[in-house]
Write a protein that binds this DNA or RNA. Sequence first.
DNA 1: GGCAAACCATACGGAAGAGTATGGATGGCG
DNA 2: CGCCATCCATACTCTTCCGTATGGTTTGCC
Lengths: 210, 210
Amino acid sequence: MHLAAPHYKYTGYGYHTHMNVSSKPERTRLSAEDWELAALHLIAEQGVGALAVEALARQLGVTKGSFYWHFRTREALLNAALERWEQYGEREIISQIEQIADPRKRLPELFRRVAHELQPHRVYASLLKALDHPQVVPVMARVSQRRMEFLTTAYREAGLPPPQALNRARLTYAAYVGFLQLNFTLGLPRINHEEFDAYVEHMISTLIPA
Amino acid sequence: MHLAAPHYKYTGYGYHTHMNVSSKPERTRLSAEDWELAALHLIAEQGVGALAVEALARQLGVTKGSFYWHFRTREALLNAALERWEQYGEREIISQIEQIADPRKRLPELFRRVAHELQPHRVYASLLKALDHPQVVPVMARVSQRRMEFLTTAYREAGLPPPQALNRARLTYAAYVGFLQLNFTLGLPRINHEEFDAYVEHMISTLIPA
DNA sequence: GGCAAACCATACGGAAGAGTATGGATGGCG
DNA sequence: CGCCATCCATACTCTTCCGTATGGTTTGCC
């Protein structure tokens, strides 16, 4: 009889000291948060379809008995993990960019920063492939919508008239999403580092108004 | 004992007269081709994950017994369907575009044509979400690679120097892929017709050199 | 130190779906 | 007409994975 709704602490996005994936000497007891983080980790690497409770339990060194104490169902875990991801997704980057004084320097800087941290994009890429699961659609819709709006105002502030700014934001964000898919999901001729930097600069020069 | 490797006819991509999904008065006997086409149809609408043999059989008005006569396994069906799709995918469009005399008019025309036939893109979009299945990766890699090369030469012929042409092709194709995902997979604020046309023109003016 | 509450293991039940075995129906063709 | 190849139905088995039931163990705390 476990109707317990455990304490959601939301201490951010990252790993605890006592949790390490795929090695089991550390046998501290687990919290709901641990399961959510492990779930996100698994989603990033193998996709939403691979999110099975018994597999996760094995990976954490426990059994299903533990899981069903913390969560009512598998869907509950997915929802909790998605909610956590949505909360602590782009917080920092957006606020960092907004602190840049010159509006015309914001977009290039955004492009370069986003380009150089690949890890946070893995979850987003996995979630893109899971758009048939009804639970992820609203989350992705909200996140994508917020980012699009951020891009749109950035383009306006960079000098584009409103209607063009919206379309340019659409184009930019589509290019971002497509790049994710084509590269570390599909593995097209593995672009290397210098080449990638050149690509980013090409993007900047063709998408951002001088 | 059915080791039979049935006759692959490859008569193109489209529906037979005697096959209609989701109504069953027509009870002709089925061929391997029928199963492949039905599979592609199902993939386009519900994704690769929904490709179950019993479900397909129900939809075709037969039972599994039929299926396992034509195919050795479920994977065999997927491979056959993918192969068919790869063969009869972009044949026409590419050849049509190549017949346009002025190289500078090819890209705008390509953009506009691709934009106005949504149906063929549904399979591609579904396959993008199935990039965790190892069977679809090589197919998508080949198809995407071919299209990218086509775009690259088109940009060169339109006047871009080679390195820029490659990056512009990358950008363009990423924008295409991302648009698919963001729109009829995720349902972002459902862009309407005039607005969509305006978006396409915006793409043309920012991505294609004057 | 002992007692709740929190946490976990073990052993089930049940649904879904892949694949197999086998016999029946159907159609061309000699 | 009758036979053989083709096509399909029925009735299984096996596996995987979700969820439940229940009892055991650990931990904070009085």
